[in-house]
Design a protein around this nucleic acid. Sequence first.
DNA 1: TCATTTCCTACTTGTTCTATATGAATTAAA
DNA 2: TTTAATTCATATAGAACAAGTAGGAAATGA
Lengths: 138, 138
Amino acid sequence: MKISAKGRYALRLMLDLALNDEGGYVPIRSISQRQEISYKYLEQIITLLSRAGFVKSSRGAQGGYKLAKQPEEYTVGMILRLIEGHLVPVACMENDPNQCPRCSSCVTLDVWQQLEEAISGVIDHITLADLVKKQREK
Amino acid sequence: MKISAKGRYALRLMLDLALNDEGGYVPIRSISQRQEISYKYLEQIITLLSRAGFVKSSRGAQGGYKLAKQPEEYTVGMILRLIEGHLVPVACMENDPNQCPRCSSCVTLDVWQQLEEAISGVIDHITLADLVKKQREK
DNA sequence: TCATTTCCTACTTGTTCTATATGAATTAAA
DNA sequence: TTTAATTCATATAGAACAAGTAGGAAATGA
């Protein structure tokens, strides 16, 4: 049960964009340097964020990326779910309607559902803006 | 971010032992049949539970496994942590003392710590006995 | 035109997951 | 004492996934 490097990087990436927003576009090369994350790997990650409409891009010289919306409008959950897929503790909860034949009598499923609620309760209530604020306080 | 099959199986295995406790030993072959889980895979899993002292074993005919303690004394967290390792959302939290050079200024770490607390809050407060009770109600 | 930058896709390398397989050691019962 | 049932130990395998690396096409501002 781990958040992958990809998910962690995505969050740091979005936070970096929020922190370094000066109106223009921020190239990933500079994010890569600040965050000390592989440039090429970041490129793949931001592609996902871009296709999802989380960031706007501009090609060519002076190009780069910027947040599509205000930091308040992004929760940590939105970002993690995009990158990691459903943040559901077990695979059988992803099927909708639930196809596992034991589900009706499965009490361990209750455990996973409670877990999911607890996880969502955390990540859906922290926004990028919260993180920006905390970071600036440090 | 998923609970592995191994972790899920371990929980079902322990629950099965609790539900089918009639004083004697329960062979894994029968658990495997009831739970429809690969016998050989279960064997590996129960070895871990056995080495950790969670279950007692008896070899030979009429042998098998039984819970070492009362169902009340096992939390879901105990079982999952044994099988899955630390249920910590990111690897950098596992180092103790924390070695990541960015940790002091890392606000995303706050997110992971909150997540871990939320997860622990759930799994450390559900016992096998709770699950047994729920299962019997169904 | 040129340097900069995103965009796209394929490849690699190592690890983990989810088993399966084989056989030795032990033990209760026939 | 034999036999069947069972745990115990270890090796192997195939698939998927993680975490990058690599190369080049397309766009764009200076």
